[in-house]
């Protein structure tokens, strides 16, 4: 436990010390909020609510896209934080960790928790923009979503750990992550509903773990029960797998399982590593 905490704390200390990274990491989500939330919201709203008829007034695109952009921030920060593993290898610090008696599971969990904490903090800071965007989410819903954001960020950092264990160079890592992260966001329902996709794309949407994370966040933050079924349908919030609608609990369990498998894989890779 002490080992996990030490590794976790080191990554947090370094994150807060790196001012450029701290501020730089907010530019992307704010840019997306400006483009999708401000500029394109009218267009998106009329496109998405086209079939709704008189219920169209209940549909607010900014309310829909905000949790998606928070999820996107979680994804970017979590995955990119795994870059610290490659840096530690380059600067030799990984050796200090690997020759110490810390169990390899603790190294994996510590690294994962570090990245997930940083990502969650960033996501929560974005909540400050809610009043500026003219939105109002239920305060308890916001409190409820934070633990899930952490869990989701754990799963995503696990993905980063997996990449970092296979890829040796910083540049290679950045390339791979860029290539993978963008489609993971676009095909997750974060920015627009992924309802009527071609069959092959629908398969990608359904195997993409981000889809379920985004869905859970939206279901918690947007007051789904008060909306009519047609609006929920238009928002793409009733995902079906093999013709059956998945519940929020199943989605959370899926993310949990996904995180567990990735910790296991990362542990194996640390066990084999000889820096």
């Amino acid at each position: 436990m002490e080992g996990i905490l030490a590794i976790w704390q080191r990554d947090l200390t370094k994150f807060f010390r790196d001012k450029a990274r701290l501020f730089g990491s907010f530019t992307m989500p704010i840019l997306f909020l400006l483009i999708f939330g401000g500029g394109m919201s009218g267009t998106m709203e009329s496109m998405m609510s086209a079939g709704l008829g008189e219920e169209a007034g209940d549909f607010n695109y900014v309310e829909f896209v905000f949790p998606g952009i928070v999820a996107m921030t979680l994804l970017m920060t979590s995955v990119f934080s795994a870059l610290s593993i490659i840096e530690d290898k380059d600067f030799g610090y990984m050796k200090e960790i690997l020759v110490s008696p810390i169990s390899r599971v603790s190294i994996a969990v510590g690294k994962m928790a570090g990245a997930a904490t940083v990502a969650t903090i960033q996501g929560v800071i974005l909540f400050l923009l809610i009043p500026l965007l003219g939105l109002s989410y239920d305060f308890t819903a916001l409190l409820q979503v934070i633990p899930f954001m952490f869990l989701f960020a754990c799963a995503l950092s696990g993905l980063g750990l997996l990449f970092a264990s296979v890829i040796r160079s910083t540049q290679g890592f950045q390339m791979t992550v860029q290539i993978l992260v963008m489609p993971m966001i676009f095909l997750s329902g974060a920015l627009f509903p992924v309802n009527n996709m071609p069959a092959w794309m629908d398969v990608i949407v359904k195997v993409n773990p981000v889809t379920y994370g985004v869905d859970v966040m939206k279901k918690i933050m947007i007051d789904v029960d008060t909306l009519s079924p047609a609006v929920v349908e238009a928002m793409g919030l009733n995902i079906t797998v093999f013709g059956r609608q998945v519940t929020i609990l199943e989605e959370i369990l899926f993310i949990l399982g996904f995180a567990a498998v990735l910790v296991l894989l990362a542990t194996i890779s640390f066990r084999r590593a000889n820096a």
Partner: peptide
């Protein structure tokens, strides 16, 4: 082990490096 190449965390202070080591080794 004192490795041939440097394995300190240069962004941290001497104190922080030593404290981390204490925690790694219980």
């Amino acid at each position: 082990i004192i490795f041939q190449e440097n394995t300190l965390d240069k962004k941290l202070t001497a104190d922080e490096n030593l404290k981390l080591h204490c925690r790694f080794y219980k």
